[in-house]
Design a protein around this nucleic acid. Structure first.
Lengths: 331, 331
DNA sequence: CTGAAAGCGCTTACAG
DNA sequence: CTGAAAGCGCTTACAG
């Protein structure tokens, strides 16, 4: 039922070696043969069995992608970028959702390692040690997390945090609350450090650190009350979802954004333009990051001499919308 | 560097056949041998090469999943369900994003067919003919689209449409606008037919059909003005994103939801609780659908005698929130 | 219960 | 430029 190279060879009246060559390395075969084989293969609907090819070449032309949560639009975008770039390079992608569980993540990586040419781990929740180990077992690229000795693609979290602070301070804010994300989040650490440094360098600016909170809507709902009690006039949320939660809770308490308080997010996920007021946030080009991670992985897999540094940092930019304004005038 | 069955056999002092049996069919081997081989394999870090196994068994223990857009949370949820169920059944999943392009979809299916045991196509954008053809080439399950002769899992779109109408009519609405989705959308056709039928059966109810519109925020923005001009007091949007667009445009025009107009969506994506007012919508259990599609596919792949009908329809339910209310009193 | 052998569908030196 | 042969890492009748 399924047509193999043997069938094509028989119909075309050549050896299977010739069929293989005509299809995989057309220049190693005469023009006549090539056309003959190509035509036969096409009309017979022949498609090479990639597993069989992989067995002899040692390359599967597939990669693995591990993400914490496919339902989260942040990761959806990255997947999209990975998938697009992989296809254009002729690679297929295996996907694994770890449900934010470090042990499932380790298992997924182990499972994939043997059946793909390389693995991309997105926002790894696992320990440094486990990741370092995985990196030893085969080509590996980390996305949205940096680890010494392992190729990584990250966003410039620090730069994003600084540009947010600069924006709020320029508007006149002096008491700024940061609603922190999960303790285990690498991005959260990066942002916290940059916010602290920026506040310390600025005159008369107080940074109030709140949290940690879960990186979702309900986290923002919780955090909003603490932020109000702290006397902050601006709230920097860990991400857009948290920012939306903050705004909702403020609305419930009769506070206006941005008239009474300014609120910012991180990520620029679609929801940031679906809520009112539209969020001022930091755009993280996630599809680009997905693409870049495939490039980095294939550099390793194909032994391409890369101009890329081991750790790539993707620049980010502030998107000013309606959720930020000067603080209210003192009575 | 990579340990094969041969290495394990050598260290354990048995033949490769025995290693293979001890690992794959433990009951065909003595208890002593089994333990010996298992221990050796574990300490050596042996993992079977799935491609090699697939070559001889004819089964890859992987499936393919084709979706129109990984960035769309609707599909993200389905992917999550598919991935979870596949893992628990010992299957890996290849993913392909078609960017809503029918020809990319056909190509993805063709590409996958040879390297997986079966394919799940989500919200297929391709033609009936192409899908019918693909179904002939190997196990195939359609998700969110029905096609005679091809196993499908769908939501009860008609039931969803009827329950929305019933809700609005009970609130007192008599002029109801439907903001239609894409012409090519199977779900849109299903919903339209059900809405028309329900309106026809009800006394003094006018259904105003608007569209077609793109199934996103901007589609809603466009549609809102037409809906207002039509004199409708309630707007049934093709999906939640369109509903959010409608509400935003109404807000811009100074109209209040639900005081001036009621608005409903379909899908119950997370954004429906992030906007204000929270959307009244129809919940589509997408993760469940993802899981069900894997079950249906494996029924075919493993020749399981299935109690399941060829076409499964998943029930849906109305979620009443803040975007619907009785129509305003006539002046 | 165990091993030697054949073979899954390919690719790739090696001859000619 | 082309073909016969070996072999990639497994599984599975077939003997013993």
């Amino acid at each position: 039922m399924v047509v193999t190279i043997r069938d094509v060879a028989q119909i075309a009246g050549v050896s299977i070696s010739t069929v293989s060559r005509a299809l995989a390395s057309p220049d190693k075969v005469s023009a006549v043969t090539r056309v003959l084989v190509e035509d036969t293969a096409r009309t017979m609907g022949y498609r090479a069995n990639r597993a069989a090819r992989g067995l002899v070449t040692g390359r599967t032309t597939s990669i693995g992608l591990v993400v914490p949560d496919l339902e989260n639009p942040f990761f959806g975008s990255i997947c999209k970028g990975v998938q697009a770039r992989a296809r254009s390079a002729g690679y297929s992608v295996f996907i694994a959702d770890t449900d934010e569980d470090p042990s499932l993540e380790d298992e997924a990586v182990r499972n994939l390692t043997k059946q793909v040419d390389g693995v991309i781990i997105c926002s790894a929740r696992s320990t440094d040690a486990a990741l370092q180990q995985a990196a030893g077992d085969g080509p590996l690229v980390l996305v949205n997390r940096a680890l010494p000795g392992v190729p990584s693609i990250t966003f410039d979290n620090g730069g994003g945090a600084r540009v947010v602070m600069r924006h709020l301070i320029a508007l006149g804010h002096r008491r700024i609350a940061y609603v922190a994300g999960p303790v285990t989040s690498w991005s959260n650490r990066e942002r916290t450090l940059a916010l602290q440094a920026f506040a310390a360098e600025s005159d008369h600016v107080d940074l109030i650190e709140l949290g940690n909170f879960p990186p979702v809507f309900s986290g923002g709902m919780q955090a909003a009350d603490l932020a109000v009690a702290s006397g902050a006039t601006a709230i920097v949320a860990f991400n857009d979802l948290v920012a939306v939660g903050v705004i909702e809770r403020l609305r419930q308490r009769g506070l206006q954004v941005p008239a009474d308080l300014s609120v910012t997010g991180f990520d620029n996920v679609p929801v940031s333009t679906l809520v009112w007021p539209n969020l001022t946030t930091v755009d993280f080009p996630r599809i680009q990051m997905g693409r870049a991670s495939v490039d980095a992985l294939l550099d390793t897999v194909l032994h391409r001499t890369s101009i890329r540094p081991a750790i790539t940092q993707i620049p980010v930019e502030l998107v000013v919308r309606q959720s930020t304004a000067p603080p209210p005038q003192r009575a």
